[in-house]
């Protein structure tokens, strides 16, 4: 509560980000989502250093155990600790999600800005975007996995080769929505007076884009960044689930889910952990994105 008896406003002018944060705090779902996502990220980043078991530590005597104090999620058919595998899997899944999001965001922003700013490029680039939008994403991804898996595994080793392949293929098949949104915003911004003013004092195109256009399209980019992570995590898990992702001994959430499905009749509870992890992460990110969208929108923020 502000003190109405104060004669003069003593506070300094509020920055935009302060307003965004205030609005963001009002969206309870987004706040909870943000906290949950942050917790999951911390858990998978710090977990391997704290947790006593290794993800690939085989202990055949302790196989197929239920939950206990030493193994809170139980052990799998080779006696590997499921919790340790979940942490390792989450590490991969979230890293893939963030890397693929970064790639798709870079591509989308580049193409969106180029199409929106330079009228000559607009037609070509937007047809190109339409073509990519008409590609059937999942089948094309599966085909890419089939074709480039072995050469890349030979070139970079089975794990980092797959990592590169998955990140690149998710990245280049998911940049289209970002490009479209950015293009629309850039087209509107380009006609504004401050851009005209900047141009009239001789600012180069590159500087106009870097200083005036990009900071103003930051909010849609940030929103699509959060949704991009969720999308990439789901896609990577789907590929791993279909057995076309990372090699079998390399845990990711999708892979763990796939392994658990084979033991569905005997140990149905095993499906829960990776499935819940994926869903919880994606759900929290979606809520986060929802809140960010509201917070970034100046029309909603004023209310």
């Amino acid at each position: 509560m502000t003190n109405t008896a104060e004669p003069l406003p003593q506070q300094p002018a509020r920055s935009k980000w302060r307003d965004v944060w205030d609005q963001f705090k009002k969206h309870k779902g987004a706040l909870v989502g943000g906290i949950i996502f942050f917790t999951i990220v911390m858990l998978v980043m710090v977990g391997p250093f704290v947790w006593p078991f290794e993800a690939n530590e085989v202990n055949i005597r302790l196989r197929n155990q239920g939950p206990s104090w030493t193994h809170p999620f139980g052990t799998d058919q080779l006696g590997r600790d499921t919790f340790a595998r979940m942490i390792a899997g989450g590490r991969t899944s979230i890293t893939v999600g963030i890397a693929a999001m970064a790639l798709s965001l870079t591509l989308g922003t580049l193409i969106g800005v180029a199409a929106g700013y330079y009228r000559r490029l607009d037609g070509v680039l937007m047809r190109f975007t339409d073509l990519f939008l008409s590609l059937p994403i999942l089948p094309v991804l599966l085909v890419m996995m089939l074709l480039f898996r072995e050469p890349l595994s030979e070139a970079y080793g089975p794990e980092s080769g797959m990592f590169v392949l998955i990140v690149v293929s998710i990245g280049i098949t998911s940049w289209m929505p970002t490009a479209r949104i950015v293009r629309g915003d850039v087209m509107a911004l380009k006609e504004r007076e401050f851009v005209l003013a900047a141009r009239s004092i001789g600012t180069t195109d590159r500087k106009i884009i870097m200083r005036h256009i990009l900071p103003n399209v930051l909010s849609p980019i940030l929103v699509s960044a959060t949704l991009g992570i969720a999308n990439a995590i789901i896609t990577e898990s789907a590929l791993s689930f279909l057995g076309l992702g990372f090699p079998p001994d390399f845990p990711t959430w999708g892979r763990l889910l796939n392994d658990a499905v084979n033991y569905l009749q005997l140990y149905p509870e095993r499906v829960l952990w990776p499935g819940l992890a994926i869903s919880l992460t994606v759900l929290s990110i979606n809520y986060l994105g929802d809140g960010l969208r509201d917070a970034m929108d100046p029309r909603i923020r004023g209310r």
Partner: peptide, 21 residues
């Protein structure tokens, strides 16, 4: 939101566990 976030490869095994197993 849940429908958006829970992928079919989790709901699938989940409903199998509940309704079939």
């Amino acid at each position: 939101m849940i429908g958006y976030s829970i992928p079919p490869f989790f709901t699938g095994p989940l409903v199998i566990v509940i309704f079939a197993v």
